[in-house]
Design a protein around this nucleic acid. Structure first.
Length: 421
RNA sequence: GGAGGGGUGUCCGAGUGGUUAAAGGAGACGGGCUGUAAACCCGUUGGCGUAGCCUACGUUGGUUCGAAUCCAACCCCCUCCA
């Protein structure tokens, strides 16, 4: 591994270093030279444990995007095969195995996310998506691991005399207990063969796996193989990115609305604005430097720009502009006309009037009536921007504005228009 | 295969017969201060139209007036030995 140097010659590595993507690289200078000389094919693997990706993977996605933008070819490797085993790194307990059908479904969901960020096709720098089940399944290795391998505890195997002595004598220990590593490494070798892939990228937690892969590709076929990792991106508060109230910040619309996605970025901490602009937008570095230098409350302008740019990438320009406008109306004008998220409630119920805590529940702002009551007691609930003081205060169609909807709020940031149907 | 330890709410983690809807912490939500930020302070944090009732401490049974707590069987995890 070589220390990344700021004076990269290739456009790709220059972007990586300057924008803060670079953490470790197996051979920075050689990779840099290669990237200057010719288009490099590189891949990042994604597992299929969920049907969408969230902000935690965004650094990786953006890295592929830059790769493509700077004239190289990205491969998105879906871990259809490896997901059947589960990555042990960073996990303190074994994960539940998920079904093959589930994996297929998840893969389809993830594919739709990527189409927003990369250009797919058959051209020399078009992105391609491949599934490692294509080659791993043929090995007939996975059925064995699923059925038999799960019953063996590595912890225990390591304590066995035969193994222990080998470790103590510093002799190589191969195979069964390192299945995931082996299969992942095999991916690199296979991609090098099939697609001429020369670079694997990933988060710093994947460093071990990536180095193994590059090694294997080199040994098996003498392929030119490099690895590169990004730093773990946390907020300045030290928290992992992408976890909030509702859980993860998903990248697709049906898991998280464009408006909420916009809000996520809008609420970026002061200290993170510059870093996030570099990582998560395509914006020019000079412009970012200017925005980052803004002081105090002015920094809010930079956050809005960040939010709109990031949202445009995941949800499209129009959705981003709409989210920004909705936010402006809701926060800066306090208007009810805003295009806020809506919820439906039966007309007869609303006509008769329901207690406020039930209305909050209907609007989806709280998960139970009890939570609604608590919210009201805590002073966080409002109808049409007026605080609700008693939890049995009646909400009915009389509270509806000119557009026929009742605006309910939980706290300052969460608003819903309740409509009768 | 043998011996021991353990499975508690979103998570971590106390709790070894009753006043335990279950300490404490984290997280989350709400309020205050602000700039829709951070930090800090305060409150809330199973469900039910709140009255008491219901549901909850791996699963299923049992003992008891009463069980997260005792017993049995089963499932899962861990540690040590072979």
């Amino acid at each position: 591994m070589t220390t990344p140097t700021p004076e990269a010659q290739s456009e790709f590595l220059r972007a990586m270093t300057e924008r803060g993507f670079m953490h470790q690289c197996t051979d920075f200078a050689a990779l840099d030279a290669k990237a200057v000389r010719e288009p490099v094919t590189a891949y990042i693997g994604f597992d299929c444990t969920a049907d969408s990706l969230h902000v935690g993977s965004l650094v990786q996605i953006m890295m592929l995007r830059w790769l493509q933008k700077t004239g190289h070819k990205p491969i998105v490797l879906m871990g259809g095969g490896t997901t059947k085993i589960g990555d042990p790194s960073g996990k303190d307990e074994a994960r539940q195995l998920i079904t093959v059908e589930q994996i297929q479904q998840n893969m389809a969901g993830i594919r739709s996310v990527f189409e927003k960020f990369l250009t797919f096709g058959d051209g020399p720098t078009d992105a391609v998506m491949v599934d490692n089940a294509e080659w791993l399944d043929e090995l007939k290795y996975i059925p064995l691991l699923r059925d038999v391998g799960r019953h063996f505890s590595v912890n225990r195997m390591l304590t066995m005399d035969s193994v222990k002595t080998r470790l103590e004598r510093d002799q190589p220990l191969s195979f069964l207990e390192f299945n995931y590593m082996i299969l992942q490494a095999y991916d690199f070798a296979e991609l090098a063969r099939r697609h001429g892939c020369a670079l694997q990228m990933g988060g710093s937690d994947q460093w071990g796996n990536i180095v193994m892969g590059a090694d294997l590709a080199r040994r098996m076929d003498g392929s030119e193989a490099y690895g590169l990792t990004t730093p773990l991106i946390t907020t300045s508060g030290g928290a992992k990115m992408g976890k909030t109230a509702a859980g993860a910040i998903w990248l697709n619309e049906d898991r998280l609305s464009a408006y909420d996605y916009w809000q996520f970025w809008r609420n970026t901490g002061d200290d993170d604005v510059g870093r996030f602009l570099r990582l998560f937008t395509d914006m020019d570095l000079a412009e970012i430097a200017r925005l980052e230098a803004l002081d105090g409350a002015e920094l809010n302008e930079a956050k809005k720009i960040l939010a709109t740019a990031a949202t445009a990438m995941a949800h499209g320009q129009a959705a981003a502009a709409a989210a920004a406008e909705t936010a402006r109306q809701a926060f800066e004008l306090g208007s009810q006309e805003a295009d806020l998220p809506t919820a439906d409630a039966p007309r007869d119920q609303l006509e008769a009037g329901v207690p406020a805590f039930v209305a909050l529940n209907l609007a989806g702002l709280v998960k139970s009536n009890g939570e609604g009551r608590r919210l009201i007691k805590g002073g966080g609930a409002r109808v049409n921007d007026k605080p609700i003081t008693a939890d049995d205060q009646t909400i009915s169609l009389k509270d509806a504005g000119p557009n026929g909807a009742i605006k309910l709020s939980a706290g300052k940031k969460r608003h819903v228009l309740l409509r009768a149907v």
